[in-house]
């Protein structure tokens, strides 16, 4: 499994060939609490890095999920519609939100690796 890269908005992206798998970080799911609903993007939508792509809702908050990289949405995790709890249980695995066909893989260079993200979390707290 390829390595996760993180944005400052707490999204992760994992590269699988030309496709990026996107979700929210384990830290983000823990902060949000029980996820009760996920508003998935439409397949075929073009998103830009940093633009709104999905919404993750807990009971008392709605948080935008920003695209960590630009490209076209090629798949969404339909399982979240009936089981939004997958994000709490396995944020970086079964709790993925959408897959994106990257427009420019170099955009990922601006993101943090695991170690850098953990450091970033310390500064945020």
């Amino acid at each position: 499994m390829s390595q996760l890269r993180y944005s400052k908005d707490h999204e992760y992206i994992r590269l699988e060939g030309e496709i990026g798998v996107v979700g929210i970080s384990d830290h983000a799911q823990a902060q949000l609490g029980d996820v009760v609903f996920v508003e998935l993007p439409k397949i075929g939508t073009q998103v830009v890095q940093g633009g709104e792509a999905a919404v993750v809702e807990s009971v008392k908050a709605a948080s935008e999920v920003y695209a960590p990289a630009s490209g076209e949405i090629v798949a969404v995790n339909d399982a979240l519609e009936s089981q939004p709890s997958l994000i709490n249980e396995d944020a970086t695995g079964k709790g993925w939100i959408f897959r994106i066909k990257l427009a420019d893989a170099r955009e990922l260079d601006a993101l943090m690796d695991e170690a850098a993200y953990q450091e970033f979390l310390k500064t945020e707290a």
């Binding site: 029980d34 009760v36 609903f37 809702e57 009971v59 709890s85």
Partner: peptide, 12 residues
């Protein structure tokens, strides 16, 4: 009359 409610369940 009630203890804390399971609001997660109400929303899911």
């Amino acid at each position: 009359p009630r203890r804390r409610l399971d609001e997660t369940r109400a929303a899911r």
